[in-house]
């Protein structure tokens, strides 16, 4: 069965004790164990090596492993904390923790800023925003002329770039987000609140271990 040679639990690379992960994230131990069920599903969808490869991430997001998407790439890169091209379980839990409804808003704001700072310069530049708008348009049915895109950028920067240097720094980003809370909508996943009921199989295992069934 599978690739395990013995009945002893062989842990994949990057697996960390759920109690440690729980102590360092927004999740409880049960929630971390439930996330492991989800992680196993995603990380075995293409290559069964206990790690999430970009193809597997795309497959889980879009149900299509070949779909290129600038934003999915950025999310993958940010989840890949060790920057080694794959997401291990501890990276998965630590990164998803930011998306928990109880995670601090500050963490969500910083994560979104890093996501949109495509070139990682510490600023969201106008050119980056344009690149992202064009990428969004190309994945949707919306068609906007270059003139309209430029006017959207003008309007956005008049509002966001309060220091008038043509780019948005973290402080400016925070003020913009506080004025437009809807920009943080993607940064909270209500699913994470009831993850133990979505992926309950670990509870079943725990009950068996307790001998209480």
């Amino acid at each position: 069965m599978g690739c395990f040679h013995s009945k002893k639990n062989k842990v994949p690379p990057g697996y960390e004790d759920p109690s440690i992960l729980a102590s360092e994230t927004t999740f409880s131990v049960s929630e971390v164990e439930a996330l492991y069920e989800l992680f196993k599903k995603i990380s075995s969808s293409v290559v069964n090596d206990g790690l999430i490869h970009k193809e597997e991430f795309q497959l889980a997001l879009f149900k299509n492993r070949k779909r290129e998407n600038l934003f999915a790439d950025r999310v993958f890169d940010l989840f890949d904390l060790k920057q080694n091209g794959v997401i291990d379980f501890s990276e998965f839990v630590r990164s998803l923790s930011v998306f928990h409804p109880n995670a601090p808003l500050e963490d969500k704001i910083v994560f979104a800023f890093r996501l949109y700072d495509l070139r990682q310069t510490g600023y969201i530049e106008r050119e980056e925003v344009k690149q992202m708008v064009v990428a969004l348009l190309s994945e949707s049915d919306m068609k906007l002329s270059d003139e309209v895109i430029e006017s959207i950028l003008d309007k956005t920067f008049v509002e966001a770039d309060t220091k008038h240097d043509g780019r948005i720094d973290l402080d400016e980003w925070k003020s913009l987000v506080l004025r437009h809370p809807s920009l943080m909508k993607n940064m909270t996943l209500p699913y994470l609140k009831d993850i133990t009921t979505t992926f309950p199989s670990f509870i079943f295992h725990s009950e068996l271990d307790d001998g209480s069934a």
């Binding site: 989800l38 889980a60 149900k63 790439d73 994945e139 699913y191």
Partner: peptide
């Protein structure tokens, strides 16, 4: 055509690549 009243980030946030809830619909 109607004027677009969204700011750039509101538009960007519509991307399916940013909708991680689909990770849970496996």
């Amino acid at each position: 055509s109607k004027p677009v009243t969204m700011n750039a980030f509101e538009l960007i946030s519509l991307s399916s690549g940013l909708n991680l809830s689909s990770l849970f619909e496996t």
